[in-house]
């Protein structure tokens, strides 16, 4: 635990000092990674903790993003207004869609979420007068808090960092709470929980709404960050790429989706500068992870750590201990 806390402090410190270390381009990249990490974290509630694989999560990202874009353009770019309105809109959307989706499971759940997200996509794409159609909405004013203007990338970075830490902390609390344990129980064996008297459908709906709402928050932040939103961010490929982030990072862990988001964004940005075959590279890496490290980057990291500590302390007791720790972590 101590080790974990230590790593956490180091990571947070690195993030706090980022604007002093990185050039503007990389700082913007980190900001984008943090926003997409929030998005991936929200999906992880469904995929990783509740065991519901969704291929329609971009719908809520889109609802939040467009809500915030329209409000910022038409009413006021006040950050809290756009953020909370997006949250509310995404919660409403996910509650309505969720009622239908949580009734089915497995592959049918995946396809139903896809269906709803594609319907939202076609709405966004067709309603040119509201959403700008295929060209999207641009020239969205940058967010304001009081008179503080967040068009400065460094200020905006800190704002995102603060929100990211809050959301990360909040989600950690949720998944470790009794509520989170019920979700994990649903993932492991829904029938058993049902027979224990849990109203699992309600729990699943709650997970769906939390995931959707946070997805909307991520969308809203993305709009504020880029001053732009277009239907391609609501398309199913966006749902697909966030799902890949969660799976490559390590679903069912807190840090996994964050690492996955960082990994994919960096890969997509850097690799595509050198070759047009970035899709193939992502595909190959994805296959390697599925075959060799099904627990994602987190699993890989743990494997490395384990072999490292094993070679350091060869005594049988410590071996057992780290094993126990490992098992414990998996349960968590």
């Amino acid at each position: 635990m101590n080790k974990k806390g230590f790593a956490l402090i180091a990571a947070v410190m690195l993030l706090i000092f980022s604007p002093f270390i990185f050039s503007l381009f990389y700082l913007n990249l980190v900001t984008e990674i943090l926003i997409l990490a929030i998005f991936a974290l929200s999906l992880n509630i469904l995929v990783g903790y509740t065991g519901l694989v969704s291929l329609g999560h971009a719908a809520f990202f889109g609802v939040g993003a467009y809500m915030s874009a329209i409000l910022a353009r038409e009413i006021s770019p006040n950050f809290f207004l756009t953020l909370f309105a997006s949250l509310a809109a995404a919660i409403i959307a996910s509650a309505i869609i969720g009622i239908f989706c949580v009734k089915v499971s497995g592959f049918y759940f995946l396809m139903l979420t896809l269906a709803f997200s594609q319907m939202i996509y076609s709405f966004v794409h067709q309603s040119t007068t509201i959403t700008g159609g295929s060209n999207g909405l641009s020239g969205i004013p940058s967010p304001l808090i009081g008179s503080l203007d967040f068009s400065n990338p460094v200020y905006f970075y800190y704002l995102i960092l603060l929100l990211f830490i809050l959301i990360y902390g909040g989600l950690s609390l949720i998944v470790h709470s009794p509520f989170g344990q019920v979700l994990i129980g649903i993932r492991e064996n829904e029938t058993r929980l049902k027979s224990m008297g849990y109203h699992t459908t309600l729990y699943k709906l709650a997970a769906f709404v939390i995931a959707g709402g946070l997805g909307g928050v991520a969308g809203s932040l993305y709009t504020s960050f880029n001053s732009f939103i277009s239907p391609s961010d609501v398309y199913w490929t966006m749902s697909g790429s966030v799902l890949i982030m969660v799976l490559i990072g390590g679903s069912g862990t807190m840090i996994g989706p964050v690492l996955g988001a960082a990994f994919i964004v960096i890969l997509e940005t850097i690799v595509s500068s050198y070759t047009t075959m970035w899709m193939m590279i992502i595909g190959i890496i994805f296959i390697l992870f599925v075959v060799f490290f099904p627990k994602g980057i987190v699993g890989l990291g743990k494997l490395l750590l384990q072999s490292f500590s094993k070679s350091n302390k060869l005594s049988a007791i410590s071996g057992k201990k780290s094993n126990a720790l490992y098992n414990n972590d998996v349960k968590n």
Binding site: S23, L24, T269, S273
Partner: peptide, 19 residues
Amino acid sequence: DSEADPQVALRKARKLIDQ
């Protein structure tokens, strides 16, 4: 490579301009 995706393209434009 803009990948014909506006958000990716914006990221790339920032790279061209800032980096």
